[in-house]
Design a protein around this nucleic acid. Structure first.
Lengths: 136, 136
DNA sequence: CAGATGTGATAAGTATGTCAAACAGCGGGT
DNA sequence: ACCCGCTGTTTGACATACTTATCACATCTG
């Protein structure tokens, strides 16, 4: 764990949000019960770089993203969506369809004072990805 | 058009097919009646690099690909499809249970009926990593 | 024929992604 | 205690994406 990572935001401001992407990848990897090195073996990508990607320190290339999606049994599109690629066309809501029915966890995350704004977004993104599709 | 590209294969063999992607981009650009420099102005990407991408000499990054899609009025998915990176494969596990409520975020996650056990652990892991070091 | 202006292609340089190796922390065995 | 194997993280070096500047070939202008 590095030394007291007090800065939730990466030093650089990317054009895409890396936080949610990294958190999502990490969550999915843990869901699959994989260590960084195991996933590295699956993806042919170094564990070091995977770690950096999960922590939002780097923007993975398409090749890497695809390998990760493959290893985790996800589609590339799912990862791209997390990478902020949801290019809402002429008419599409960005990310605002929480379906406030029985959204106690979402509410808890939203109002959690311990989380920074970026963390809140990331956590919500992961949570929504888990329960996505079954709204109501 | 300078050289009627008689050599179909780029000197390098990439992990993904760049030929189709570059050809598609070039075709779309010409359809939009844009020169390389005009497209460079739209995308904020150098015309030189755009030329290389169109000829399949380089693998464009996420940022570049998105800018290109934007400039051409395409969706990123269309570009990805041309790049041969769209893989089908659903990855969803349906779970349904009644609802409950909770106070703290951890408690909310723990009692969230929508989450599987593995998802719960993963989400808690992410959450704890965010607030790690702080009192719980 | 010179000189604009527009095109695609190339060269050299900078920025950034990626890796191999070494690091610190943790639990278990001999 | 030490050593082993595991976890995630960091460092330093390299490969690649990307930029800036320039070149060569066209087409138009006078």
């Amino acid at each position: 764990m590095a030394s007291a990572d007090s800065g939730p935001e990466p030093p650089h401001a990317w054009q895409v949000q890396l936080g949610p992407l990294g958190a999502f990848i990490r969550a999915q990897r843990q869901l699959a019960d994989l260590s960084l090195r195991e996933m590295a073996a699956l993806t042919k990508i170094s564990n070091a770089y995977l770690s950096q990607v999960e922590r939002g320190l780097h923007q993975p290339s398409l090749t890497v993203l695809r390998a990760i999606a493959n290893a985790l049994g996800l589609t590339t599109e799912q990862l791209l969506a997390k990478a902020g690629w949801t290019q809402a066309g002429p008419a599409a809501a960005p990310i605002d369809v929480p379906t406030d029915s029985a959204a106690s966890t979402e509410e808890a995350i939203r109002t959690d004072p311990r989380l920074t704004e970026a963390q809140r977004e990331a956590l919500l993104g992961v949570y929504r990805s888990f329960i996505e599709g079954k709204t109501g």
